[in-house]
Design a protein around this nucleic acid. Structure first.
Ligand SMILES: [Mn+2]
Ligand SMILES: [Mn+2]
Ligand SMILES: [Zn+2]
Ligand SMILES: [Zn+2]
Lengths: 145, 145
DNA sequence: TCAAGATTTAGAATAATTCTAAATTATGTC
DNA sequence: GACATAATTTAGAATTATTCTAAATCTTGA
């Protein structure tokens, strides 16, 4: 790791190490790409975006990097519908409002302790995945007509 | 539709009609298969089970039937992880506890009004999808050692 | 400097789902 | 009932998303 990386990617690098991974430029680029735009892109979309700054990166590497980032809890993985997995840069406790008509996704913050649920005996909770399906304001308007 | 079907499948048939679908033996069989075992099978698994009573059914038909049943709200569709979509016979309000180690799924009932969340302006809610990821009692025990 | 292990890469392979076009079945009209 | 029309099913091809493979490259630590 060079000096610039040591400074800028310090915390990032440590997080990777804690998870048993090394720092690599590919992981840094993929991470940057996900953090840059606050949406919920698929691996394919992240691949396309990452190629802009790192044209030689491969498909498999993007998948590998994303898996590493998810394991280190640097990004979230979300399954809102059938088809490609999406990734989310927002690590704060939040739920997803998903428009079944246009595919738009909205993050909505959740108080940390919001979900108190009965649980199967002995189950060790890792994380919650809360999605609300329906129609966004725009699509709800259209479908009324 | 014959007399037996009219009697046994009356409500089922009406639900299909309301959704703009016809009653068909294939839809009935796929529905029966999903309702029979209270688990969360994939389309492939449902295909295999349905073939036991209807060996000539095709892959595409199982997918088509499941889509129709989901649209009529006769079964639920759930995405707990990357990979094949699962289907759920339990139409009562409930959430899914999912073991990331062994893949086991547990239904846990939810009071109907349990989830009061702030929502994007104008968003028309259709349904909630709540999953809790972690380790089941058995897997949590194993991983401790 | 060297060996071992981690990571990346291109492309092949696999898995899950959707599409296509022909055959079959059901429905309503004469 | 015969016929036109539309819905549904079917086998198999095509597509999409993801994982695997094996070789090349990079990193780390002895
Ligand atoms: Mn999000
Ligand atoms: Mn369920
Ligand atoms: Zn919308
Ligand atoms: Zn388990």
């Amino acid at each position: 790791m060079n000096a610039v990386e040591k400074k800028l990617g310090n915390e990032f690098s440590e997080r990777l190490n804690t998870g048993g991974f090394r720092f690599t430029p590919q992981r840094q680029h993929v991470y940057d790409v996900v953090m840059q735009k606050r949406d919920h892109p698929t691996a394919e979309e992240i691949f396309i975006r990452t190629k802009r700054t790192m044209p030689e990166i491969s498909h498999a590497t993007v998948y590998n990097c994303l898996d590493a980032l998810v394991k280190c809890r640097l990004v979230r993985q979300v399954q809102l519908e059938r088809g490609a997995t999406r990734f989310c840069p927002n690590m704060a406790e939040h739920c997803h409002y998903f428009c079944d008509a246009c595919g738009e996704v909205f993050d909505v913050a959740l108080p940390t302790d919001s979900t108190i649920m009965p649980r199967p005996k002995g189950f060790k909770v890792d994380h919650y995945d809360i999605a609300v399906h329906g129609l966004c304001a725009e699509c709800a308007g259209k479908s009324k007509k």
